[in-house]
Every structure is written in structure tokens, then in C-alpha cells.
Design a binder for these strands. Structure first.
Lengths: 209, 209
DNA sequence: CATATCATCCCCCAATTAGCGGGAAAATAG
DNA sequence: CTATTTTCCCGCTAATTGGGGGATGATATG
């Protein structure tokens, strides 16, 4: 009877919330909660025993935080799918969680149905995200439309950020080294920096490249 | 009566599909189709007249392709929300579309309901994506788990990719310049490259950093 | 316990690079 | 028509890079 039911682990320090999730998840036949923990350490300790396909992970936890926990879990078992469930919509946290290996990120105002939908989506190979989170993620691909740099300058800075030297940039853009140097001079002046790394840092931060 | 209905433009070269979408969208009261085009050029030409809040954009078009169209449209009107609707799930195209400024990316096997949901989501500031697309996007944040580089080497390479010099890397990691050099030597040997830019290129391609 | 990898540190050396200063001319766009 | 962009040139010096050759102790991994 259990053969086709996905094993789920919940890490959530609020007992009421954790037990609520368990009830919701256990109420449908496709999956069941093998274990619930109020901290990441216990989850890690029992990972090999629990063998979950999916972990529902809170981020604000006592002791080890959720981001560290995701990294640690993924190091032990790369195939487990982790869905972050938190109140935080802070973009830094979102990207940290995704970089650490989260497969989905849903915020805590989600309904029971949305929670179950997220689990379904992960099982089907998707990446469930709350609406705002998806927007954050998509925005991260887009450049700042108010860049002070010209198209050519942006092109040069992009190559610079890939570690190319002046002469390599010149070669790739079919210009002389002097022209590349000239562009870089102008880039530095516009960004008010005076070195490659500062320029890259500023451009990355302001999404100019 | 029209004041609160969102204006939608459809760019889709298949007449039947385009007209089908129009019927679906016009069947609900929240939005209506102001224009439909079978190519991007005509859409661009009429952008100021149509004043759409949302554009439903196909990628495979005669003449100017969808990616170029998105860039061109966004250059004219940064606030218009563009939802890509295509059969392609190719990751390169997805990222190009998002980088060009698409707010959503749905594939053509979506139901009428899902199409309308996507439009709703965009209006509410979200970023609708098909399940597979969301997974692609989320995966793009994650590193290759089979990196040949050690943690320290990865750290060094990350700083190198930010344009830092050997001495700056040494400073940031509290090691000597010689140690940084040593790490870089080992990185080059492991990646079988012999320069900074090659290393960064290979590491980026294989998502080691 | 032996071997491998990792992280740290040291030397020498030559070629290239980066960034500073100063220009200038043609093309493009508003 | 004026501002910006893109292209190109010169000289100069400090710094960087990447090649080579090592060594040490710690920590895994078998």
C-alpha cells in the first residue's frame, strides 16, 4: 500500500504549523509524512533512515539555519527535492536557497491546496514558486534599463567580466587594443571606479551586465 | 466599461491559434485583445497606438524573431508585460527571452485556463512559467555537484571571476599571494586550461562557480 | 598505514597587462 | 547641429600573470 506514496519530511520549528502540514499532507493518498523535525540537525541525523523524496523546509530555525541545512542535505543526498516554506520574501534569501539546492520556494500565506500543488509539481519535475518569488527570479535575469553605459561599453565590460584582457577584447570586437582601452577608460569614468574589479562589482550589483 | 479591462496584443503567426487565443481572452471580462499580428514588425509599428498592458508573444515568427522583438518592444515601453508562448522548451531560448525582458514563459500545450491564469498572474505582478521552464530557471542557480575543484579552489575561482587579482584574492581569503597562485595553478591544471579567461569560461559553462 | 588530496607557503623569471596621462577624428543620434 | 558614441593614437610605469621549480602539515580515503 505504501509502495507508490512519496516520503515527505517536514522541518519546521513551530509545532502547530508542522502538525498542521502533516495532517494536510497525510490526508491525501499520494504521499505521507515520514518524520517531522523542529530543527535541521535532527533532520540531517535521520536522513538515511527517513529516506525522503521531498523535504518541506522552513528557513528560520533554531541552531543551523535553513540555507545551511539545504546545502548539508544536498551534500548527503543530491536527489532529494527540497521545497522552502517560509515567511521571508527577501530576495537574498531566495537566491541563497535556490543556489544551495532548493527545488521550490513557497511563502507561508499559501493555502492547503497550493501546498499540495507544490508537492505535486516537484514530483512531476517542476519548480513550484509563489508568484512574488517567481517574479524575483525572472527579474534577476534582466538588466537595468537605466544603464549609463553605451551598448558598446556594455559589451566591453561584459568581456572584461569574463576575464578577458584588453587585447582579447580588442580581438573579439574587431577593434584595436587602444579602442578597447578607451572604452574601458570611459566605463571607469562613468561608473566612478578605477579598476577592473571595482567596475565588475559595481556593474554586477547594479545589473548593468 | 473599458476602463478597467487590460489591453492585450497577440503576436502569433498561426492565424488559427491567434484567433483562438483572441476568443478565449475576449470571453472573460477582465481583459480584451486590442490587436493581433502575425509578425513582430507590425506589432512594433502599432505599439504606441495599441498601448497594450500585456503582449502574448510567439517566438518563431517570420522576419524579426521573438527575442529581438521583446528587446525592441521593451526599449519602446519598459512597463509592458510580455508573456512568451511557444512550443520551444530549449533552455537557451528561455534565458534569452527572460534576459530580453519577458515576464513569463509558457509552452503551447497549456490549456485555456492556464493561459488565462498566466495573464492574471502577470497583472498581479507575478511571472507565470510552465512547470518545465520554472525547473530550468531554478536549475540555472545551482552549481554542478560533480566539480573537480575543491571548496577552496572554487572560492578562489569565484573571486578570480569577479576580476580580483592574485593579491586581492589573497587578502580576502587571509592567505599569502603565493598560496592564491598555488590554488590557481591547481585550478588551471584540473580544468586543463592555462589562463584566467579560459578558466572562467570553462567554469561558467560547466557551472562550477 | 600508506597514498592522495588539500591547503598553505616559498623562490625565480619574462612577457603581458592595466591604468594613468594626454590627445583626435568620424559616425550616429537626438 | 550638438552631444554622444565609437574608433584610433602616443608614452609611461607599476603591477599582474603564468611558466617553472619546489616544500610542509593536515586530512581523508582506501
Amino acid at each position: 500500500m505504501n509502495y507508490f506514496r512519496s516520503r515527505i519530511v517536514i522541518v519546521e520549528d513551530n509545532d502547530a504549523v508542522r502538525e498542521g502540514f502533516s495532517l494536510i499532507i497525510n490526508s491525501v493518498s499520494n504521499y505521507y509524512v515520514v518524520s517531522g523535525y523542529d530543527n535541521a540537525e535532527d533532520c540531517l541525523k535521520n536522513l538515511k533512515k527517513d529516506k525522503p523524496e521531498i523535504i518541506l523546509m522552513d528557513l528560520e530555525l533554531p541552531g543551523m539555519n535553513g540555507i545551511e541545512a539545504i546545502s548539508a542535505i544536498k551534500k548527503i543526498n543530491t536527489s532529494v527535492e527540497i521545497i522552502v516554506n517560509t515567511i521571508y520574501e527577501n530576495s537574498e534569501l531566495v537566491f541563497q536557497a535556490l543556489c544551495a539546492g532548493a527545488s521550490g520556494y513557497i511563502t507561508k500565506n499559501t493555502s492547503h491546496t497550493e501546498l499540495l500543488d507544490a508537492i505535486d509539481e516537484v514530483i512531476q519535475g517542476g519548480a513550484p514558486m509563489s508568484s512574488k518569488i517567481a517574479k524575483l527570479v525572472v527579474n534577476s535575469f534582466q538588466k537595468n534599463p537605466n544603464s549609463p553605459l553605451s551598448a558598446r561599453e556594455t559589451e566591453v565590460l561584459e568581456l572584461l567580466s569574463k576575464g578577458k584582457s584588453y587585447s582579447m577584447i580588442a580581438q573579439e570586437l574587431f577593434i584595436t587594443k587602444e579602442t578597447a582601452k578607451s572604452h574601458i577608460k570611459n566605463i571607469y569614468s562613468k561608473l566612478q571606479v578605477n579598476s577592473k574589479s571595482e567596475a565588475i562589482a559595481k556593474a554586477t550589483k547594479e545589473k548593468l551586465i
